Simulated assay, not measured.
Amino acid sequence: MPLFKTNPFGHYLFLKKWIIRFFGVVSHGRYQNFNNLKIEGSQILRNLPERNVLFISNHQTYFADVAAMFHVFNAALKGRDDTIKNIGYIWQPKLNFYFVAAGETMRSGLLPKIFAYAGSVSIDRTWRSAGQDVKRQVKNSDISNIGKAINDGWVVTFPQGTTTPFKPIRRGTAHIIKTYKPIVVPVVIDGFRRSFDKKGLRIKRKNVLQSMVIKEPLEIDYENEDIADIVTKIEYAIEQHPSFLKVLSPEDAEEYIKEEEELNKKREFWS
């Protein structure tokens, strides 16, 4: 690889590689030693093409979710079956791997800026800014950048746009799917909210069972399915459709969501 080769966003690949290597080593114990990450579906990752893949996932922390995916995806591509043991896989990481994140989050300090260089496609949220509800137009450049990343490799997005569970799916994800026609792979995670603070930087609790399930790609009729149908399909795929709360009584479900929202507010204060 030429020393000064860049990706479509102008980031030097040799620098991106060393950032991933460094933070990969630093973060590995957070999923392998302090806590226990259970993985399902590694073989699905090895059957995917090199590019034009969009991963959709529920969201529990700002950074720990994505960091875990860096580990799981690279370990799987190096032949690991549902494990991230033997961190040698991080030495030659997949460099065309990106994640969609709020621009204000990725600009909030030196560490987030470094994380952004490792693969962030930063966008300006249309519904939330600086902790306040807003309404603004989608920036065409944001959509274009997501498409650029999809065309170059693998992209992770969190369609709810929030770490609060069972919030609505943002329709923008469905528009991106119809526009760029990627292979769409659902990922369902759990345990990260209990083991890390909201930012995903501080270990809050040890010996938590974390899980990551990679599912088979969705079957989507890009031409004929409408946005609402794709949104519903996403809700079920990442297990955030309201029907998943039916395992609880209505009172318990309401209390569960209320507790999660209150806990997230506390975490914002702690962080």
Results as ranks from 00 to 15, higher is better:
P165S: 11
I143E: 01
F166N: 15
S129W: 08
R202I: 12
K167L: 09
A118V: 12
Q92Y: 01
H175P: 04
A101K: 01
V155G: 05
I150V: 12
V100S: 03
S129Q: 15
L111Y: 14
G161T: 10
K178R: 14
L110M: 14
L201P: 06
A101Q: 02
F97C: 02
F115H: 05
Q137K: 15
I123G: 05
G147E: 03
Y117M: 13
V187A: 11
A149S: 10
R128S: 08
Q137T: 15
S129D: 07
S129I: 03
V187M: 11
L110H: 03
S120F: 11
I169T: 14
F158A: 11
S122C: 08
D190P: 03
I123D: 00
T162N: 10
A130L: 09
N140Q: 15
K199I: 01
G131A: 08
L95V: 06
R193K: 11
D133C: 05
R202W: 02
A174M: 09
K181P: 06
T105N: 12
I150S: 04
F97N: 00
F97P: 00
K139L: 15
T173K: 10
N96I: 00
R202G: 00
W154I: 03
I123V: 15
A130P: 00
M106R: 00
I176D: 01
E104I: 05
Q137M: 13
S122Y: 03
F115Y: 15
F196S: 03
K113E: 14
M106P: 08
G147P: 04
R193Y: 14
R136E: 14
G172V: 12
F97G: 00
Q92C: 00
T105K: 03
G109E: 06
P182N: 10
W154M: 05
I146L: 07
T173V: 13
K94V: 06
A102D: 07
N140H: 12
V184S: 09
N145D: 14
Q137D: 15
V134I: 15
E104Q: 12
V156C: 12
D190V: 08
D133E: 13
G161N: 09
N151T: 01
T157C: 14
F115S: 09
A130Y: 09
W127C: 10
D152F: 08
T157Q: 06
F192Y: 12
K198E: 05
A101M: 12
